[in-house]
Amino acid sequence: MKHNTWIYLTLMILTTNLIRVIPITLIRGKIKNRFLKSFLYYVPYVTLAVMTFPAMVQATNSPIAGAVALILGVIAAWCGLGLFPVSILCCVTVLVLEFFL
């Protein structure tokens, strides 16, 4: 029997959003346990770092362009540029470099 696409979509929407909502609603107070607190302090930086590299270098047509964008992005962020400027800098770097590479 053929399954219904709308039911597939409904199940996907419900499951994905439940995963997002359950922890944030169940954990109402500040966590006191020192290990858990420390763990949660590092989670955002570690998970974003793990997702950025090597994915950023593999996302572009030329890995060299991606790598240069990564290095320039790190330098710009280190110097205190915000989300939007760093993001644009990376895009422009790839756009320009891929004319030559």
């Binding site: 955002p44 770092a49 994915a55 950023m56 990564l70 989300l83 760093v86 993001s87 990376c90 895009c91």
Partner: peptide, 11 residues
């Protein structure tokens, strides 16, 4: 790379 650039600006 727009999304990754943003991640860099966060971490």
């Amino acid at each position: 790379v727009a999304l990754y650039g943003m991640f860099l600006a966060i971490i």
